[in-house]
């Protein structure tokens, strides 16, 4: 395990370095000008130049990149040209909302995937099930998000359609409202947070559920034909016990890999879902950063998402190895 973790840590650094260099190069290619964005469209050229110097944008690209790496070693991701705050501070502020949403979406996605696989296994010839899966799988996230908001909040009023809390001016110790409500002895905050989480998490969970569910169903289908399954049945084990004890564990490898892939998509989808649901997380932060040419913030968030993506895939690979020891690390 340790050699594996050491190897992956090195690859994490290499990947992040490559990613940061690519994003830095993009900054010099795309026409956006953070100095003009700060100074405003009507500011005189001299003002824009002053801002450019203050940001260090008048230095050659390699000098800027060297300075960025040097600061990065000290945990400094730079300063946002939009919020004027250290990007690390912004990330700390916005990350809990996104992390909470992403975690709940993953839980929803995995639970729905299991349910989907079960339904597919038990109703293999149902046209309705196939149609529902195709519909859910082919609906673009922006459309499913809007449909959820429109019907479940606006038309039916079952669930809140925006924001993290209806309770105002709450600030918890961790930033995870689900947890903070209990930590400060206000369970109503946790319940409110949960209600606000359902729709955005569901929007993010649907693509995960379809992809992982289909993968799990396919793997289960093969596993359930194996001889050790027949042996279990011969021993008189119930079908549920067989699926849970032997089927799922042996079929887990492919869906786990799919979860790893889906995490990358989930990060991208956060940008859409957080915007529509006014969810104050890193997705919304990034959307606003793009709109205001806040390239340092885009770079900082890319590195954060990249780090999480790699770490989650390490967890996935370890889980695969634990589920199926034939898969070495």
């Amino acid at each position: 395990m340790l050699p594996y973790l050491a190897k992956r840590s090195v690859s994490l650094v290499v990947v992040l370095l490559a990613m940061s260099f690519i994003v830095f190069c993009l900054q010099s290619i795309i026409p956006a000008d953070p100095a003009r964005a700060i100074a405003g469209p009507t500011a005189p050229a001299a003002t824009v130049e002053v801002v450019r110097q203050q940001l260090g944008l008048d230095d050659p690209m390699l000098v800027q990149y060297g300075r960025f790496l040097s600061n990065l070693v000290h945990g400094d991701l730079g300063t946002s040209v939009r919020t004027r705050q250290p990007i690390a501070e912004d990330v700390r502020k916005y990350l809990p909302a996104s992390a909470e949403l992403a975690l709940v979406a993953l839980v929803f996605g995995i639970a729905l995937a299991g349910l989907l696989a079960l339904v597919q296994n038990t109703m293999q010839n149902s046209g309705w099930v196939k149609l529902a899966i195709v519909a859910a799988g082919s609906t673009p996230i922006f459309l499913s998000t809007l449909l959820l908001v429109y019907f479940l909040w606006f038309r039916l009023g079952w669930l809140p359609g925006a924001g993290r809390l209806s309770i105002r001016r709450f600030s918890g110790p961790t930033g995870f409202n689900l947890l903070d409500g209990f930590l400060v002895g206000r369970p109503e905050v946790s319940l409110d947070a949960l209600l606000h989480l359902i729709l955005p998490a569901l929007a993010l969970a649907l693509p995960i559920a379809v992809a992982v569910g289909r993968s799990l169903n396919g793997a289960l289908h093969d596993v359930m034909k194996q001889t050790y399954i027949r042996t279990g049945r011969g021993k008189g084990l119930s079908e549920t016990a067989i699926v849970l004890r032997h089927g799922l564990r042996n079929a887990a490898s492919a869906p786990l890999a799919m979860i790893g892939l889906q995490v990358g998509l989930l990060f991208g989808n956060l940008l859409i879902v957080e915007r529509v649901f006014s969810w104050p997380g890193l997705g919304l932060y990034t959307v606003q950063a793009f709109a205001t040419s806040d390239l340092p913030a885009v770079l900082g968030v890319s590195l954060v998402f990249g780090t999480f993506y790699i770490l989650i895939n390490i967890v996935v690979e370890v889980s695969q190895s634990l589920a199926d020891p034939r898969i070495g690390l």
């Binding site: 909040w153 359609g161 915007r275 529509v276 006014s278």
Partner: peptide
């Protein structure tokens, strides 16, 4: 409130 989407604002 910060509501980035005009559709959400209209609703």
């Amino acid at each position: 409130p910060v509501i980035a989407d005009v559709g959400q604002q209209i609703l």
